[in-house]
Each structure stands twice: as structure tokens, then as C-alpha cells.
């Protein structure tokens, strides 16, 4: 096999004595995302001594290592080798799974729904319609606790973060900020606008992996009524297909 696409340009930055930041810097954000996630998979599979792991996000990858075993110089060479391999073998192909997420919107479940509607100059119903209109690619697992970070719904305007972040946002909170969307797997402080809540259990700290999705999988929200919420409680988020 040979490479089918032009290699994405990549820069490697020092990030202390135990990490490197790798940034894909092409104008094509999809290519950047694909490059850092493919590189993360390659690094995991190659399993170099002293490399703890890689955290890919949108256009960036943090590679963490043990400076007692290896060094920033060696890991940089290893990363560049991985990039050459990717150019040669191409990105690993994996069929994305889709997850279906029931959500109660507004009220006590989504205290910021009206604020978001007002900011977007749309009705609450239009906000819900836009949020449930498409399926979202999970771009990366973020803080806290493996949150599925997604490109946001097709709202007219970016959603501003709360001026005073909440000290505690419940598990299952469905939130938006800027041009991003997320579900909170665990109770944590948060400054994103919460527009709804899913009754499903996203995080299971007793099993590995802790969350059922991986970057590249898709997620679709559908609306349920408040009285249906209790019926879903205790069920785990599972792939529909």
C-alpha cells in the first residue's frame, strides 16, 4: 500500500522533561484530527519503553513519558518515525459505532436552555431541534473523566461559557460551549451551558474501559419527556450499532 494523501505537516514542542506536544498544522482540521489520532494509536500499538501514553484532542497530541527511562529527544525521534509509518501505511480504518442518547431538555435538567435560546435568538424548541438534528463525531476524550468532546450543534452563534462556573454539574449533564458539545460522565465543576440531562450511566469506574466510546465514534441525541427519565436510570450508554 502507498500513501493516498499528502502528509499533514506536524510540529513537535517541548512540554517539560516528561512530555511532548505534537501539533498537526495543515489548514484542513479534519486531516489534523485524523493525523493526531492515528499517531496516538500507532504510539500505543508500538509501545516504546518509557512511553506512558498519548492524549490526542483536535489538532494536538500530548505524549507523556518517564524521563528516567527515555528522554524528550528519543521520544521526538519515535514520534517522527510514527509519522513516517502513517504516511506509508495510511490511517488505521475502523468502523465508527453510533450511540443513541436520550435527553430531557430544559427545566431542572437543563437550567441554561433558555439562556442559550435567548443568546442564539431562537426559540427553545428550535434549540432542541438543532441539537437533535445531527449525529456528532466524538473528537476526543476530555476532562473530566473521559467526557466525549464533540463539534457542537449548528447554532448560529458560538455559545459563551458561564461567567460563574458551577461548583457541581451532575453526571449525565448535556452541555454546549463555543462550537463544542459534551456529556458530563461524572459530577464535576463546569462552566459550560447545561441544556439537558441524560439518565443513562456514561462512566463505569468498575470496568475497563471506563467509558464505552472511543474518538471517531458517533453520538445522536433524542428527546424524552421528564416522566420517562426514571425509566432509564441505571441503564448504561451502549452502542446502537
Amino acid at each position: 500500500m502507498s500513501a493516498t494523501t499528502t502528509p499533514t505537516p506536524v510540529e513537535v514542542f517541548e512540554s517539560g522533561d516528561a512530555a511532548l506536544r505534537v501539533v498537526a498544522s495543515s489548514p484542513d482540521s479534519e486531516a489534523n484530527w485524523s493525523t493526531v489520532h492515528s499517531l496516538a494509536e500507532w504510539l500505543e500499538a508500538a509501545g516504546a519503553d518509557g512511553v506512558h501514553g498519548a492524549v490526542p484532542t483536535y489538532d494536538s497530541l500530548l505524549v507523556e513519558f518517564d524521563p528516567g527511562v527515555t528522554s524528550a529527544r528519543q521520544v521526538r525521534a519515535f514520534v517522527l518515525l510514527g509519522l513516517r509509518q502513517l504516511d506509508f501505511i495510511g490511517a488505521p480504518a475502523r468502523a465508527p459505532r453510533e450511540f443513541s442518547v436520550p435527553v430531557v431538555y430544559g427545566g431542572e435538567y437543563g437550567p441554561d436552555l433558555e439562556r442559550v435560546a435567548e443568546h442564539e435568538q431562537l426559540s427553545v424548541e428550535e434549540i432542541i431541534a438543532l441539537h437533535t438534528a445531527k449525529s456528532y463525531v466524538i473528537r476526543c476524550l476530555g476532562a473530566p473523566a473521559g467526557s466525549p468532546m464533540m463539534d457542537g450543534p449548528d447554532f448560529p452563534l458560538p455559545v459563551p461559557r458561564l461567567k460563574d462556573p458551577r461548583l457541581s454539574v451532575p453526571a449525565g449533564a448535556v452541555a454546549v460551549a463555543g462550537r463544542q458539545a459534551v456529556i458530563a460522565p461524572a459530577v464535576a465543576p463546569g462552566g459550560w451551558c447545561v441544556i439537558g440531562q441524560t439518565p443513562l450511566t456514561v462512566l463505569d469506574a468498575t470496568s475497563e474501559p471506563l467509558v464505552p466510546y472511543v474518538p471517531g465514534d458517533r453520538l445522536r441525541f433524542h428527546r424524552i419527556r421528564p416522566e420517562e427519565f426514571a425509566g432509564y436510570v441505571g441503564r448504561k450508554l451502549d452502542a446502537a450499532r
Binding site: 516528561a18 490526542p56 476526543c140 476530555g142 463544542q180
Partner: peptide, 28 residues
């Protein structure tokens, strides 16, 4: 855009304080 930050990262998130992330830091 959210990205991975190393333990030990020094950030200036507000006008009041410097933040030095330690081992319990959020990963991104």
C-alpha cells in the same frame, strides 16, 4: 482548542493567580 496539558504546566487563567497543575490535573 482543548488539548492535553502536562503535569507541571503553568497557566495564567485569571488576573489574580498563577495556576501550576499537579498530578490531579484535568488531562485537557
Amino acid at each position: 482548542l482543548s488539548r492535553g496539558v502536562p503535569v507541571g504546566a503553568i497557566e495564567v487563567p485569571s488576573r489574580e493567580e498563577l495556576l501550576v497543575l499537579h498530578r490531579g490535573r484535568g488531562v485537557t
